[in-house]
Design a protein around this nucleic acid. Structure first.
Lengths: 186, 186
DNA sequence: ACCTGAACACCGTTCAAGT
DNA sequence: ACCTGAACACCGTTCAAGT
């Protein structure tokens, strides 16, 4: 008969699920292989049967976070569409504590970037084919760079409440405005 | 009389100097308070007299890295000047292993961003006053985001040589081209 | 096939005690 | 004032042994 503290079978999927759960509650520092194992009522070493390393686990977590980036529709101008893409990525990575750091690691590890397809489609539709990879890189790096600073700043504020606040939403809009206007226009 | 293995007095400056030295040789994972203390021929706990925490030490290291960003001169167009600023920041942060991560942490901790002054001057000279903070955020986040991915990718390649290479210099130029052209032009 | 138990080789930080 | 020595509370990972 099933016992209450053995709620789920220990599979790779369950491990990643629980990792995301802990990430949401405690952030990346709270997500150790030991706390993860404890939540699953298993020894830390048991995790290594389902996942080769913490690195690989984090890449899987990154892919899950990126998968929450919903489809984005067409808009009047290329700039408007690129703005929507950037905002969607930012929403996805900031939905979890330390999401930017994990996604940055995941992309470096070779995770597929969902921004690429959307930007390619936008560029095709607006006669900017040659710039698809350039805009993918520009928007992804911008969003991850700023979100990383924001989430790091948040973590520091928690550790030291005397830290002055930062207005990252406003800076995101300002930065995006500049970037989508180009340096030719005031 | 001075003994050869006590080369320098243990000051905050010497601690930061040695931290940068180890960073250059072994990257961030190699820069533990223990290895740092060992290099200085002192107990790990001794460092805490000169530096309140590793966090603070890393912020000081970030400020040193940012201080290597040389002055950038005027150019014909605003776009050309912004390109030079972005390239200068990239050169500075990629000069050390894990420099992007450390600088991102430093900026989040409140370190002064040298890009701000240069961009403000550029915007003033080219009639873009309202966009100074926007361009500062855009360029800084873009450069740090891409450099972070590059250096993380490099670390993963060292750990696992089967990792496919990435052409980050080319992606930097492409991204910058797109960003400085704006989505209106092909 | 899948997990336990114990160990290895590390971390950052604190703090009484020395000088 | 400045440093040692020892400890505290952690890490990720490995591996023989169990079932």
């Amino acid at each position: 008969m099933p016992v209450p503290w053995a709620a789920v079978a220990l599979t790779r999927t369950a491990v990643v699920d629980t990792a995301l759960e802990i990430l949401r509650e405690s952030g990346l520092p709270g997500m150790s292989m030991r706390t993860l194992a404890g939540r699953l009522h298993v020894q830390p070493s048991a995790l290594y049967w389902h996942v080769p390393s913490k690195q690989a686990l984090l890449t899987a977590v990154a892919e899950r976070i990126l998968a929450t980036m919903g489809a984005v529709g067409a808009a009047e101008t290329a700039g408007a569409e690129l703005r929507v893409v950037a905002t969607a990525l930012r929403t996805a990575v900031t939905a979890y504590p330390d999401g930017a750091e994990i996604v940055a690691l995941g992309l470096a590890a070779g995770a597929e970037n969902p921004v690429a397809d959307v930007v390619a489609e936008t560029c095709r539709r607006h006669g900017l084919e040659g710039r698809a990879s350039g805009w993918t890189t520009a928007l992804t790096a911008f969003v991850l760079g700023l979100s990383l600073e924001q989430q790091t700043h948040h973590n520091l504020s928690v550790a030291d409440p005397s830290t002055p606040p930062g207005s990252f939403d406003a800076r995101f809009e300002e930065g995006l405005d500049a970037l989508l206007a180009g340096p030719a226009s005031a």
